[in-house]
Amino acid sequence: MIFSRGTIDGIAAALAVHGLILRGGFNIADDEAAPAGNSGSAAKSALLVGQAGAAPWPHFQRWLVRQARGIANPLDTWSREVIGAVAQEFGARAVSPSDRPYLPFQQWAMRAEKLKPSPLGILMHPTYGLWHAYRGALLFEEGIFLPEPQEAIHLCDTCVEKPCMKSCPVDAYSERGFAHEACLGHVRGPRGEPCRAGGCLDRNACPYGTSYRYPSGVQAFHMAAFARL
């Protein structure tokens, strides 16, 4: 069975209530290793769920004020709750990027939207730049009728200056990869206030998708979660 465009539109509408969007999808071939679907049988298709810019933030904040103080990983919890409810409505299994064992979300995203990683590791989107995220996926035991996605323009290929590699005070990103400990030490230290208050300086230096850039309060939330502040 292959479900209809109308079903996909219904899923998109249910997610939009929470500021979330569908981020493409794909069918899983019979000879591929597949995660389980809702009943435990192998999934035949996946729809990725995420965001463009900070659209979910007001919805998340309204949810958060109703929760007990000190809830662990609140954004993950909210995402699981919202996407899980949509999954239940449409007969899917909801999975999250933070589920263990980890599922290959970045590979799924590259497959669904034909994106490539930026020098910071975040997938570069031709419209949203670096200001987007994947919050979960819906796994179905039926196929999906979806047009084959076109290869996305990889903006990093045409960016000569690469300001995203030159703005960090401790050169956390380089051709050698991400210097995790150096980044953490700086963010937590006395000179890390600009990063704590406004987010990663390298990410903010990227010239693409700036109209989708997360507000400073949203970036501060994510930085605090990353650095466990």
Results as ranks from 00 to 15, higher is better:
65 V>T: 15
108 W>E: 03
225 A>Q: 15
229 L>G: 10
106 Q>P: 05
129 G>K: 07
113 E>T: 03
59 H>R: 06
4 S>K: 13
71 I>M: 13
82 V>A: 11
189 G>H: 09
17 V>D: 10
107 Q>L: 04
117 P>V: 10
148 E>P: 10
161 E>L: 12
169 P>N: 07
219 Q>D: 04
172 A>N: 02
77 T>S: 15
71 I>A: 04
41 S>C: 09
196 R>K: 11
168 C>G: 04
97 P>Q: 02
228 R>H: 09
6 G>Q: 08
167 S>K: 07
198 G>D: 11
30 D>I: 15
99 D>A: 12
126 P>Q: 00
15 L>H: 00
6 G>N: 10
12 A>I: 11
8 I>G: 06
72 A>S: 13
121 G>N: 10
214 Y>Q: 05
109 A>H: 08
225 A>E: 14
210 T>G: 08
49 V>I: 14
1 M>I: 06
217 G>I: 11
114 K>H: 01
127 T>A: 05
116 K>D: 00
90 F>A: 09
62 R>N: 15
160 V>Y: 10
213 R>E: 11
79 S>I: 08
138 L>N: 06
86 V>S: 12
183 C>Y: 06
22 L>F: 01
100 R>H: 10
212 Y>K: 08
29 A>S: 15
210 T>L: 13
141 E>H: 05
160 V>W: 08
160 V>I: 14
118 S>E: 12
87 A>V: 07
211 S>A: 15
204 N>T: 03
60 F>L: 06
222 H>L: 09
87 A>P: 09
48 L>N: 06
157 D>I: 03
105 F>G: 05
145 F>G: 06
220 A>E: 01
226 F>L: 13
107 Q>Y: 07
79 S>F: 13
113 E>Q: 12
154 H>I: 05
154 H>E: 14
6 G>W: 00
216 S>P: 11
199 G>H: 00
35 P>E: 12
163 P>W: 03
21 I>H: 02
6 G>A: 12
83 I>M: 03
138 L>I: 09
27 N>Q: 04
36 A>Y: 04
180 H>V: 02
106 Q>I: 07
128 Y>A: 11
55 A>S: 11
192 G>L: 05
188 R>N: 13
34 A>I: 02
140 F>K: 03
72 A>M: 12
82 V>E: 04
135 R>I: 05
184 L>Q: 01
204 N>W: 00
4 S>Y: 06
8 I>W: 11
82 V>D: 02
160 V>N: 09
66 R>C: 10
22 L>H: 00
63 W>N: 09
124 M>W: 00
130 L>W: 07
198 G>N: 11
11 I>D: 08
48 L>P: 06
21 I>E: 00
66 R>A: 15
51 Q>M: 04
158 T>E: 14
221 F>Q: 06
25 G>R: 02
